[in-house]
């Protein structure tokens, strides 16, 4: 499909820069980022294209496929980018823009709610069973006591992430699987 470059969102690039992708303009499309990307060949996440789309303001095309959520944040592109354009930071910034528009993967909402309610990204109940099995000492982390969880909740309450990550007041963990941790 032919793209008319005038019909773009000129504010996108400014927003991305404000949200952490400060050096997106440095990109000169060499392809170093995409060539070392672990997900490029299996997903729609094409980081070189995304960098270009940001400077052109093609917000719809970026958000359309939700590909920015397929980045493993391995930082290989950021490490090797010859212009220090920090592509991974641009991905983070785009995710922040995306979250503002209400587009965020369910799994991340799950992780966030786990952290909000349990103090940890994974369920604690199963953890304690496993600890007993291997004779691990008594759990002393946030998940061990309601007072620490209250503390974390208070912190999250005072940030945008409370609404952006759709924190629910009544939350039951959906699964014992590890969804994400880094």
């Amino acid at each position: 499909m032919k793209i008319i470059l005038n019909n773009n969102n000129k504010e996108l690039v400014n927003k991305v820069m404000e949200y952490g992708g400060k050096r997106v303009y440095e990109c000169f499309q060499c392809g170093m980022c995409a060539s070392g990307c672990p997900v490029a060949s299996d997903t729609e996440h094409k980081i070189k294209r995304t960098m270009h789309q940001v400077t052109l303001g093609l917000e719809e095309q970026i958000m359309d496929k939700k590909a920015i959520w397929l980045c493993t944040t391995c930082f290989m592109c950021l490490e090797r980018c010859p212009q220090n354009a920090e592509p991974t930071e641009v991905v983070f910034a785009l995710r922040r823009v995306s979250a503002e528009n209400g587009i965020i993967p369910e799994a991340q909402i799950e992780v966030a709610n786990n952290i909000y309610h349990l103090g940890h990204a994974v369920t604690v109940e199963k953890g304690i069973k496993l600890r007993n099995k291997v004779n691990a000492p008594l759990l002393k982390t946030a998940g061990s006591d309601k007072k620490y969880i209250d503390e974390i909740q208070k912190l999250i309450d005072s940030t945008h992430s409370y609404s952006l990550l759709r924190i629910e007041k009544d939350w039951k963990p959906k699964r014992d699987d590890v969804i994400g941790c880094d």
């Binding site: 980045c71 493993t72 993967p105 799994a107």
Partner: peptide, 8 residues
């Protein structure tokens, strides 16, 4: 695994 990939 990272960046939410394992969950997403």
């Amino acid at each position: 695994a990272g960046g939410g990939m394992r969950g997403n």
